[in-house]
């Protein structure tokens, strides 16, 4: 019997590409974030609101990730910002190789902010570095306040939590206080925003944070 010691990271190939993306974005002083959530919690709506608030102040580009269709890219395109759609054809997460290919389509060198909207999924995308500056996890009030405890890796790896659809709080059995308690138990350093993409509540605060990051 022969034994060979390997000790190599399984995702090393992804990580090499992600680091290359990170260096390129840094060289162009672009602030980037990877937007993550379960399907239907409002990622694309938040991106639309964010663009509406910021597009006259700063140059934004978007990479959209979906299992099928370019519907999200069509929505973003209507707002007049550069957008590239990644269709994973069944893949449950974006990886750095897909983002590298999409980057060439958004003329990234002229951007100041890059938003990468991941495939709707609170599990699989958590472990894949895309070369972003930070991960932003979005949780809507319709999903329930126990989600941080059920999907800890996602909340642990993110630096920002957005609690979305707060306009629906009177109609759903969900406590924002509990979401915060549960999320902070997983990740005490989370920066938390409460938003509604319907009423626009909280969007200014979120956008101020983005501007502050981009200007650092």
């Amino acid at each position: 019997m022969t034994l060979i010691t390997v000790e190599r990271k399984v995702l090393e190939k992804n990580d090499v590409i992600a680091n290359d993306i990170r260096l390129k974005l840094k060289a162009h002083k672009i602030f980037s974030f990877n937007l993550l959530s379960s399907p239907g919690s409002g990622k694309t709506s938040l991106v639309e609101r964010t663009i509406a608030h910021l597009k006259d102040k700063i140059r934004i580009g978007v990479i959209e990730g979906d299992v099928q269709t370019d519907l999200d890219a069509q929505r973003i395109d209507l707002l007049g910002v550069p957008v590239a759609q990644i269709v994973t054809n069944g893949g449950c997460h974006l990886d750095a190789g897909l983002v590298r290919d999409a980057l060439s389509k958004v003329d990234y060198a002229n951007l100041e902010i890059l938003i990468i909207e991941n495939v709707g999924n609170l599990v699989c995308p958590a472990g894949f570095d895309l070369g972003e500056d930070t991960k932003v996890v979005l949780l809507s009030t319709t999903e329930g306040d126990d989600k941080p405890l059920k999907y800890p890796a996602m909340f642990r790896n993110a630096s920002v939590l957005i609690i979305n659809k707060i306009d629906l709080l009177p109609y759903v059995n969900c406590s924002v206080k509990k979401i915060k308690e549960n999320a902070l138990a997983i990740n005490p350093d989370l920066k938390i925003f409460e938003t509604s993409c319907t009423s626009d509540a909280g969007i200014s605060g979120w956008c101020d944070w983005i501007l502050a990051q981009a200007n650092q």
Partner: peptide
């Protein structure tokens, strides 16, 4: 809550055994 994760993030190929 002032903690650091010592282990739990591993995802590695560690050894290959041959006949």
């Amino acid at each position: 809550s002032k903690i650091t994760v010592v282990s739990g993030n591993e995802l590695t190929v560690s050894e290959i055994e041959f006949e």
